[in-house]
Structures are given as C-alpha cells and as structure tokens.
Amino acid sequence: MLKFVITVFSMVLEYLPWIIYMLCTPRIIHFFQMEGYKTADYTRWLGRNLKTAFGPGIKQLLAVRSDGLDVYFD
C-alpha cells in the first residue's frame, strides 16, 4: 500500500516542476505585456523590480530554512 501511494505521489511530483513553471509564467508575461512587449522596456522593468521578478525564486530557495525543514536534508 505504502509503495502504491509513493508511486502515485512520485508520478505527480515528477511533473510538478512542469506544472509550477507553467503556472508561474503568466505572472511575468503580464509585466511583459504591460511594458508593451518591448524588450528594452521589459529589461528596464526587470532591472528596477528585481524583488518582484526574482522574489518567488529566492523565496523558494529560502523556504526550507524558514520553514524549519532542515531535517529533511543530509
């Protein structure tokens, strides 16, 4: 039973990065659209809004420590 549960979870989690990546993309595309699809304007926006643009990735990196889940790491 445990093996079955793990198998199902593994299958789901295997593709989670795909799902999460695709769900996170519209957030940035929204800003890109607001900047009129212009690369120059978008890069200027990126430079000025590092926190907004890269925050979730950084948050992700820091999440484990802040959640006290170090126990799961070697």
Binding site: P17, C24, I28, T39, Y42, L46, F54, P56, Y72, F73
Partner: peptide, 26 residues
C-alpha cells in the same frame, strides 16, 4: 543528488522565468 542541490535545482526553474520570458521573446 545532494538534497541541497535538489532544492537549488527546483528553485532555479522558477527563478529563471523572467529570463526565459526575455529569451522566449527573442
């Protein structure tokens, strides 16, 4: 992998989205 590496690895997908949008536009 080292679990810390796995953690970085997973985060990188999300962190790279702003660059990927730029690259996708190109």
């Amino acid at each position: 992998m080292n679990a810390i590496m796995a953690h970085v690895y997973y985060s990188i997908f999300i962190a790279l989205i702003p660059f990927n949008v730029l690259l996708a536009n190109y």
